[in-house]
């Protein structure tokens, strides 16, 4: 079976202003060779009110540009307001929903189709079988999986008619907490956070005491400091059965990043050459692909 591999733009994980948000998705709609775009708040329910009224226009513009729009659910659901967000999302209409917490499955109807986000623990074929039977159409595998697992799960997914997707670009989401670290490092409480996370458009870097770049905090979320890039692993991943590649929005030129991925997927250029171009595009960025290689996640080995 030959499928044309597709590109998904994952949900924006960071707290951008409403104008930045609108401009970003307008440009994605008009210029990026991306097949589908996930919109919505995954990290912190307090951020959604800032841009919720921008959603209809963005959805319309993206759809007009031929892109599928998916609505993403919140990753950690504890408050009443957050449970309501999930319930409203399930009833919101005809757009497919990306499930980022299994809370969503208590609201989705038995025959309702959905996408599974990378924060859901899909480690094995038993879990995949359950999700297939519940209506999953696409599964973005957890970023910490090694290639052997990716390969096995991709083949299994295709057997179930599920599209296997991989975390291919962006700082890796590593943890989520009840505690807001952005507020904490600013000496604030979560309930009175003054939205300090908005100061860091790609998260706030966390360095070791020896000055090594290590992690990044984004509100209640912790990400890698490195930017995962599987651009140079695309051949391997295609052989392993992966058919969809996820890029996570960052403040750099995402249209250019998407074009590089598209060109490698279309076999116009080699991964190695694209990797060089990516380095030029994002100077100073440290890349990683260690999880895929079964090493520690921060490691990077070029093709």
């Amino acid at each position: 079976m030959t499928t044309v591999p597709t590109i998904t733009l994952g949900p924006l994980l960071f707290n951008w202003t409403a104008d930045q948000w609108s401009d970003f998705y307008a440009r994605i709609a008009d210029e990026a060779p991306i097949d589908r775009v996930c919109l919505g708040e995954v990290v912190c329910s307090k951020r959604l009110p800032f841009y919720i009224n921008r959603l209809p226009d963005a959805i319309e513009r993206l759809q007009r540009a031929g892109k599928q729009v998916i609505l993403s659910s919140l990753a950690l659901v504890t408050l009443k307001r957050e449970r309501r967000m999930c319930m409203d999302l399930a009833a919101s209409g005809d757009l497919e929903i990306e499930v980022n917490d299994l809370t969503m499955l208590s609201h989705l109807k038995r025959d309702q189709r959905f996408t599974v986000g990378p924060l859901i623990n899909v480690y094995n074929e038993g879990t995949l079988a359950y999700l297939a039977q519940r209506g999953a159409t696409r599964v973005c595998l957890p970023p910490e999986l090694p290639l052997a697992s990716v390969e096995m799960l991709s083949h299994e997914a295709i057997f179930y008619g599920i599209e296997p997707e991989i975390w291919a670009f962006g700082r890796v989401p590593l943890a989520i907490s009840g505690r807001c670290y952005h507020a904490r490092v600013h000496g604030l409480a979560k309930d009175n956070c003054r939205f300090v996370c908005g100061e860091d458009s790609d998260g706030l870097g966390v360095d070791t005491l020896d000055g090594e770049a290590f992690l990044a905090v984004n509100g209640v979320q912790t990400l890698s400091s490195t930017c995962c890039s599987l651009l140079e692993n695309i051949d391997q991943l295609i052989s392993a059965g992966v058919t969809s590649f996820r890029m996570s929005p960052h403040s750099g030129d995402m249209v250019a990043v998407a074009r590089l991925f598209r060109r490698v997927l279309d076999r116009e250029i080699e991964g190695r050459e694209a990797g060089d171009a990516l380095g030029t595009l994002l100077p100073g960025m440290v890349f990683s692909n260690g999880f895929l290689r079964g090493s520690h996640g921060a490691a990077f080995e070029r093709a």
């Binding site: 990753a75 950690l76 924060l119 623990n121 480690y123 957890p142 970023p143 910490e144 890796v172 590593l174 943890a175 989520i176 907490s177 009840g178 505690r179 992690l215 912790t222 890698s224 260690g290 999880f291 079964g294 090493s295 520690h296 996640g297 921060a298």
Partner: peptide, 21 residues
């Protein structure tokens, strides 16, 4: 644990070994 358990890959990011796997 300060992170939501079962949803944390910090350890494998640094060492390759995680609670989940």
């Amino acid at each position: 644990c300060v992170m939501a358990e079962g949803r944390c890959s910090l350890s494998s990011y640094a060492t390759g070994k995680s609670p989940n796997m």
